[in-house]
Amino acid sequence: MKKIVGQVTVEEKNEIQLLFERRNGLNELAKILTPENDALYQKLVKDMGETGTKFQQWWDGMADKYQWEGTVDGHWEINFETCEIFLVTNN
């Protein structure tokens, strides 16, 4: 099930969209980069950790700010077109 539980500003949406794109880019780069390329590999590992942290911080911060409805078995999603936040649950 998917229902709207809130909305963020365009600026806030831009922040998470950038992190989302970067995280995707890092994940797909990780598939081709090997430890033999040491400098770039180390940079990637560090970057993946930092980006993941920032990503989670954004969701935590926004949830705290807007007090969205949540459930234990669900997760939030954002629609980049509309800035709407959805609560997605399995039932």
């Binding site: 081709i32 940079k43 990637l44």
Partner: peptide
């Protein structure tokens, strides 16, 4: 692969 790694590098 070259595009991805160069963009990142």
């Amino acid at each position: 692969n070259y595009i991805k790694s160069e963009l990142y590098r």
